[in-house]
Design a protein around this nucleic acid. Structure first.
Length: 473
DNA sequence: GAGTAGTTGGG
DNA sequence: CCAACTACT
């Protein structure tokens, strides 16, 4: 994370503290064991980003050194070779990262080295915002109010970095005696994809959003056929755009906005940034979320593990066009519009009554912007097992969602071209067509497109009664 | 401890 | 209306 050379707290602190003849290295540890959770497109985004970061350092005659291996192995080797070292980095809140960082800390401190860690991936320090009883917030709105009350300029200041402060003559190219492969520069170059990594691309998206998108965000963000969101999620995750400069941009837009409707759009986007903060806090306080439901009683639900159903969902052949279009977009692009994330997640957990963890894992494999806190939070929200979750009896009706947010079916048709000739009255429910209509609109049900795999209103009643069993215990 | 409020709805 | 609930101040 925080893969940028500007507006970076850890880097800034390092640059201001490192002195005179102090030797240093700039390293990125690539632990391929964790790549089980990385989708292919996500790796491409990361590689793109690392390439650009390396090129940025080259202009200062510095190097980004890529070390493959487990962090603990790498740091054991480093202290064996170099003895006392100090380590500057930005912290992460994911449970597995916290564990890793604790082990690394022990290794570095065993040789009296110093750990200098900073928070840089959120506006507020995770854990900083608590309610009046000193406890974590479990509801978003009071969290948000508290956060906005505390918000000061300092939270979105540009944390300056001046790489000219260090003498590249003091850079050490790491040589350690380990199985880890050490590599500098020259990462696999990737063709430019729909979501390419790197700071240049991130800044360009931010600029575009500032210029044209943010003031209309409130009215456009829910329509998946419209490019109405910032599309910055992956950049905020990998830190190619800093969360501070995102907020800074929004605040600037707010100050310059003249119309009330523009301000409303900007406020709505800031709210979304604060949802991210909320879920980071929740993850920070609840590492058990990596395997458990936030509301533990719901781990007593008798989820279905029907592999055929899961397979149809994942491939986008459920017979529910809005769900299928979403899954096909996710599979092909590694990104999914937020409204559609909710629809497909609700469909998996409620209509198919499949464990949210399976959906969470599938998203983790496919999403370029995968972020543990937001992904887990979103899935548990849809499954009604999480913080401030949708009550279990409020189940999205996929057809109503489809008609409301994709009225003419243009989103559906983009990802399910076989439905391209359907008029709006059938594009949401193709299996309602009779045979002559099927011929007329070039879609034969069961041949060109499947009929609905389950009956929404029936399965809805079943899942509500399953949830009720738990609630009344 | 009482009063208020609660992201994204549906039948 | 749903089915009450809980979180929060």
């Amino acid at each position: 994370k925080d893969l940028r050379l500007e507006d970076n707290r850890g880097l800034s602190e390092f640059l201001s503290k490192v002195s005179g003849s102090c030797k240093f290295s700039l390293i990125y540890i690539k632990n391929e064991n964790t790549f089980n959770y990385f989708g292919e497109k996500r790796i491409l985004f990361l590689n793109n980003t690392l390439s650009e970061l390396e090129a940025g350092l080259t202009s200062y005659n510095l190097h980004l050194q890529l070390i493959r291996g487990k962090s603990t192995d790498v740091f054991n080797s480093l202290i064996n070779k170099y003895g006392q070292i100090s380590l500057y980095y930005n912290k992460q809140i994911e449970p597995y990262c916290i564990k890793r960082d604790r082990l690394v800390k022990e290794i570095v401190e065993s040789k009296n080295g110093m750990i200098c860690d900073f928070n840089d991936s959120t506006i507020f320090e995770p854990g900083e915002i608590k309610n009046d009883s000193g406890e974590q917030y479990k509801v978003y709105t009071p969290f948000k109010k508290n956060a906005l009350n505390r918000l000061e300029k300092n939270h979105y200041v540009n944390v300056k970095t001046d790489l000219n402060l260090i003498d590249s003559g003091n850079e050490v190219i790491v040589e350690i005696n380990t199985d880890s492969e050490i590599k500098t520069g020259k990462y696999e170059l990737i063709e430019k994809s729909y979501f390419s990594g790197g700071r240049k691309e991130g800044l360009s998206l931010l600029k575009d959003f500032y210029t044209t998108g943010i003031s209309e965000y409130k009215i456009k963000r829910d329509i998946p056929s419209v490019n109405g969101t910032s599309r910055l999620s992956a950049h905020l995750h990998f830190g190619t755009v800093s969360i501070r400069e995102a907020l800074r941009t929004a605040v600037t837009a707010l100050e310059k906005s003249k119309k009330e409707s523009d301000a409303a759009g900007i406020q709505t986007w800031i709210n979304e940034l604060l949802w991210r903060e909320f879920y980071y806090h929740i993850t920070y306080f609840n590492p058990q979320l990596i395997s458990e439901s936030f509301r533990k009683e719901y781990d007593g639900l008798k989820w279905s593990y029907n592999e055929i159903h899961f397979d149809k969902w994942s491939k986008g052949i459920t017979g529910y066009p809005i769900v299928d279009a979403g899954m096909r977009q996710l599979n092909s692009e590694g990104w999914l519009h937020n409204r559609v994330r909710m629809i497909v997640a609700m469909f998996l957990t409620k209509d198919l009554f499949i464990d949210w963890r399976l959906g969470e894992k599938y998203f983790a494999e496919k999403l370029i912007d995968l972020d543990f806190a937001s992904n887990n939070g979103g899935w548990q929200w849809c499954a009604s097992t999480g913080v401030d979750a949708q009550p279990y009896f409020r189940i999205f009706n996929p057809y109503l969602q489809s008609k409301k947010f994709d009225p003419d079916g243009s989103y559906i048709k983009k990802y399910i071209p076989e439905l391209k000739d359907l008029p709006p009255e059938y594009v949401h429910e193709p299996d309602l067509m009779n045979e002559s209509e099927q011929r007329k609109f070039n879609v034969i049900i069961d041949k060109d497109y499947p009929r609905r795999m389950v009956d929404h209103s029936k399965v809805r009643d079943n899942v509500i009664s399953e949830f009720k069993k738990i609630s009344y215990n």
